[in-house]
């Protein structure tokens, strides 16, 4: 039985349009003009216990709005949500007791008090038995390396430190479902990878269901087998990560720095046999865009290295924005 069920979910926002000028602001007072913006547009999916699902989409696609409805913060305009059999916004109390949430840009701790005080407060709020609390705290101290941070006020923590404490806080009550909204935003590689490892471990050990939104495809690659992708509030993909990438990310970008300057005709000669587009901001730096179904990256790299002197090169990871664009230009809804 699915642990999360979402059925034809819709969320409209009313935005208030300000008119300009003094007369306009007066008119605003008397008669406000609203515009309806549909942030989430008939989305349906279901998630089984123990799954780790990446919920992705470009900026403003409606990811956070969905998460906020799933966590009971926002009330849907229409459609149904059930998480562990509860309707989040109707049974907010019971619901939030059984989920853990981390918003990358916010903290659930309290700014001015020490981390340990905040965690103890959460113990009281979630009515966690003392023995359980101590045991989990001890585990998190080890795995997340937060033992030294406990006596520091939250406002004095760095982003990475705070995020590790926030993760610990969200899991103190051992929730069956964990929502992570951009948990790695702004973090350096080391912290990112320790957070990914931690999420993996929690999922393995407690069979925790994890829903993760992110900008960073590498988060998804490390953690999720399944991906749900939305754009302009609509679901455009739900299925395997690998097949999404295979289908969608045809175009790749190779960035190359040359030791000697080179102009377009020269490069065109070198790469004459390969279907490649090129762009450049200066003759030392060129970017090659190619379709990986037509040509493989190693072929182009090999040709360049054998003919020219290359200082550095980088094969760009596909960005979520690229994936969305690709799926869009293909003009079809991809179903697994």
């Amino acid at each position: 039985m699915p642990i999360i069920e979402v059925n034809e979910l819709v969320k409209n926002f009313r935005t208030f349009r300000r008119r300009s000028g003094l007369w306009g602001s007066f008119k605003d007072l008397v008669n406000r003009k609203y515009e309806i913006v549909r942030a989430v547009d008939h989305i349906s999916f279901s998630i089984e216990p123990g799954e780790v699902v990446g919920y992705i989409g470009a900026n403003g696609a409606g990811k956070s709005t969905t998460i906020k409805m799933l966590t009971g913060i926002l009330v849907p305009t229409s459609g149904g949500i059930r998480v562990q059999g509860l309707v989040p916004y109707k049974q907010r109390y019971q619901h939030v007791k059984q989920i853990g949430v981390v918003f990358g840009q916010r903290t659930q701790l309290w700014w001015d008090i020490a981390v340990i005080e905040a965690l103890r407060l959460l113990q009281k709020i979630y009515e966690i038995p003392k023995a359980d609390f101590e045991a989990r705290l001890k585990k998190f101290e080890e795995v997340l390396g937060i033992a030294d941070l406990l006596n520091i006020p939250v406002r004095k923590l760095s982003l990475g430190q705070r995020m590790r404490c926030d993760l610990a806080a969200s899991l103190l009550h051992n929730p069956p479902v964990l929502f992570l909204d951009e948990p790695t935003i702004g973090l350096d590689i080391a912290v990112k990878s320790s957070i990914r490892d931690f999420i993996k471990e929690i999922n393995r050990e407690y069979n925790t269901t994890v829903i993760l939104t992110t900008h960073d495809l590498s988060d998804i690659e490390h953690l999720c087998r399944r991906v749900i992708m939305i754009d302009h509030g609509r679901l455009i993909y739900d299925g395997d990560l690998k097949s999404l990438k295979d289908r969608a990310v045809g175009r790749r970008r190779l960035l190359v720095d040359f030791i000697l300057p080179i102009e377009r005709p020269g490069l065109e000669k070198v790469l004459a046999e390969y279907p490649v587009e090129m762009e450049s901001s200066n003759p030392f730096h060129w970017e090659f865009i190619f379709d990986r179904k037509k040509v493989a990256a190693p072929e182009i790299i090999g040709q360049l290295l054998s003919k020219l002197e290359v200082r550095d090169l980088e094969l760009e990871n596909p960005k979520i924005e690229d994936v969305v664009r690709e799926i869009y230009t293909q003009g079809r809804q991809v179903k697994p």
Binding site: R92, Y93, R106, T107, Y126
Partner: peptide
């Protein structure tokens, strides 16, 4: 928007 964090508490 930090109201979200308050609403997440039972």
């Amino acid at each position: 928007g930090s109201i979200a964090m308050d609403l997440l508490k039972p």
